[in-house]
Nucleic acid binder design. Structure first.
Length: 651
DNA sequence: AAAAAAC
């Protein structure tokens, strides 16, 4: 394949230069240890091979000590290893041809120059011809570090706002920047007043309070949880902060039934590709958001897990970019026009798998930009030019800082799992990235759990955003059967093994990487093939293990919350939470790995007696009804949940 | 507190 040859040739060509440069290090070999490190303060400990007594610094030239010889031999050994390694790089064929070199006869005669190993120190340029060692500025006399521009004296950082401290208020005023009017105005759309506008959302106090609704048990009220956002309990326990829900314009499912993707404004090629992917007619969330996105509005959308959010933003995004590019040539090395940010690499990869075919159907290119894999391919794609970048914040910032990713022409930016992207650790990189996009770029925020947590981004980046959701589509109305097993802690391993020993695909969630790893090994040992998915694995393994679950080569995957959000595997029919989640949102996302696109699924959460109440509170916040039942090893409930036949004669 | 996210 010429494709393979090209990079190889390129590498060889590149190596050509450094090999000549390598001569320098060959010359280095003539140096003796004493000189090469002249002036440097040797090791202070007498037993160290680099040890040089203080007075050696100024002492007259003398013979090599045994110690120095040993040091020299060792240095030689290291250098010859280096040489061997060098040889591994440049291929023999690529090295300078023999004919290019001076012919043997023409080279200095053997006798004219000492052989490498015979060359003696004395044969080198005479001391007198060179600056004498003692005449050279001594290390001590060289400009002191302190004499150079001191860090403190350099232009103060404080003179300009630090990147992460730069506040929205300090930025160019909106009015000073290109007007948003260049985009199709959202106002021109019909039914504008029907929208739940962000600004108009019902104020907290005006809405029915959550505690007015039927509650399970007597846990702290929602008001208690939200009264002081971020407040901590007496001990260092994590607090499941419940953010105010955004009021949305609820799309009635029947309101959009009968609508087609074409009706929504998508072009023929895209519609056909969607159909090929199995999306014949739009899901409600898609019917709700495609129009506004095509109109250029900033959109917040909440759609139940597995409700088709990726297409809801992906298809109109491709259509928008296509329209904006209309009539323009596809330039080599063009800057990307759309950016999709995701919280995990797996999710970024998966989004690309959905969007790439849609984009390609109209001649647009996508690329994944995420960490854990070599940059070269990603940079190569960017050099050729892509239209849509899909990735995770770290690598995107990295490539931007390296000048390899130009974000200045991004006109549509999407945050998938937007509320998660607003959490500690994600928010700031996301803000920095969004600030790099084109002024007035369209922002789309999607999540199954979209709440006021995204306020930090909404207030800075979104203009008159509308919130959409599908009426009656909260998590509890879905196709998922929620169960809580109250167990004895000591039986947990056996109960887990019993649950996962089944036919269907099972996703097990563990709180830590170590426990996820441990559980997968435990299942293996018990004869249930299982793999792990967590951040301690290299990306190749992560990708492979998830793929093995998708393809069915393994039916049990034990994961940390890296797999909690967005990951779509068609037919996971059981989710087991080996550790109960800390946050109601985590519960919703984890459980959303099953019951995708209307399928049935079961979520089993294991809790100990002590955690019972906390779990009840969490489920209350998640607005999920789940029966609690005691379970022990061998109980029928384990058989039932795992889908194994319960023996009717067993009583 | 853990997990994720860059080399």
């Amino acid at each position: 394949m010429p494709k393979n040859k090209k990079p190889a040739g390129g590498r060889a060509a590149k190596n050509f230069e450094p090999r000549y440069a390598a001569k320098t290090s060959y010359q280095d070999r003539k140096r003796r240890p004493g000189e090469s490190s002249a002036g440097k303060a040797g090791s202070k400990s007498p037993n160290h091979r680099g040890y040089r007594a203080e007075q050696a610094e100024s002492a007259p030239k003398r013979r090599w000590s045994a110690q120095e010889k040993a040091g020299r031999d060792e240095a030689r050994a290291i250098r010859s290893q280096d040489r061997a390694r060098r040889d591994d790089r440049g291929r023999y064929e690529d090295r300078p041809r023999r004919d290019d070199r001076a012919r043997y006869e023409d080279r200095p005669r053997r006798d004219d120059r000492p052989r490498q190993d015979e060359r003696r120190y004395e044969d080198r340029a005479r001391r007198d011809d060179r600056p004498r060692r003692d005449e050279r500025p001594r290390y001590e006399d060289r400009p002191r570090r302190d004499d150079r521009g001191r860090y403190e004296d350099r232009p103060r950082r404080d003179d300009r706002p630090r990147q992460d401290e730069r506040r929205y208020e300090d930025r160019a005023r909106r009015d000073d920047r290109p007007r948003r009017d260049e985009r199709p105005r959202y106002e021109d759309r019909p039914r504008r007043d029907d929208r739940g506008r962000y600004e108009d959302r019902a104020r907290r106090d005006e809405r029915p309070r959550r505690d007015d609704r039927p509650r399970r048990g007597d846990g702290p009220s929602r008001a208690d949880w939200t009264a002081k956002p971020g407040a901590t309990r007496a001990h260092d326990e994590h607090v499941d902060v419940v953010h105010e829900r955004l009021q949305a314009r609820a799309i009635q499912a029947d309101e959009v039934s009968g609508t087609t993707f074409a009706d929504l404004g998508l072009g023929q090629n895209i519609v056909r590709t969607l159909a090929d992917m199995g999306a014949e007619t739009p899901f409600p969330i898609q019917a709700a958001t495609v129009g506004p996105i095509l109109d250029g509005a900033d959109v917040l959308a909440r759609g139940r897990t597995g409700s088709g959010k990726t297409i809801a933003f992906g298809a109109p995004l491709v259509e928008s970019i296509l329209r904006a590019q209309a009539g323009k040539k596809r330039e080599f090395g063009r800057a990307p026009r759309a950016l999709i940010l995701a919280p995990t690499r797996e999710l970024a990869l998966q989004i690309d798998r959905t969007i790439q075919p849609i984009a390609r159907s109209v001649g647009l290119f996508t690329t994944q930009i995420y960490g854990g894999v070599p940059q070269a391919r990603q940079v190569g794609a960017l050099k050729k030019g892509v239209d849509i970048v899909i990735g995770t914040p770290g690598r995107i910032e990295d490539l931007h800082e390296q000048g390899k990713l130009d974000l200045s022409e991004i006109r549509v930016a999407v945050l998938d799992e937007a509320d998660h992207m607003c959490e500690l650790g994600f928010l700031e990189p996301v803000q920095r990235i969004l600030r790099l996009t084109e002024d007035g770029s369209q922002k789309l925020l999607f999540s199954a759990t979209l709440d006021r947590e995204v306020a930090a981004l909404v207030d800075e980046f979104l203009v008159e955003p509308a919130v959409y959701e599908v009426a009656g589509e909260d998590q509890d109305s879905g196709t998922i059967d929620h169960r809580v097993l109250v167990i004895d802690h000591r039986q947990k391993p056996d109960i887990l093994t019993s649950l996962v020993d089944r036919e269907g695909k099972t996703l097990v969630f563990a709180r830590t990487r170590a426990y996820a790893e441990m559980l997968s090994e435990q299942f293996e040992d018990a004869g249930v093939p299982a793999l792990a998915l967590h951040g301690d694995l290299n990306q190749a393994k992560r990708t492979r293990n998830l793929e093995k679950l998708t393809s069915g080569k393994v039916r049990v995957l034990v994961a940390t919350d890296v797999a909690a959000r967005g990951i779509h595997v068609d037919d996971i029919d059981l989710v087991v939470q080996a550790d109960a989640p800390d946050e109601y949102k985590t519960y919703l996302h984890r459980s959303g790995r099953t019951g995708r696109a209307g399928r049935a699924g079961t979520v089993v959460t294991l809790v100990t007696r002590q955690r019972r109440r906390r779990m009840a509170e969490l489920l209350d916040r998640a607005e999920i009804d789940a029966p609690f039942e005691d379970a022990a090893v061998g109980d029928d409930v384990l058989e039932e949940l795992s889908g194994r036949q319960v023996d009717p004669t067993a009583g």
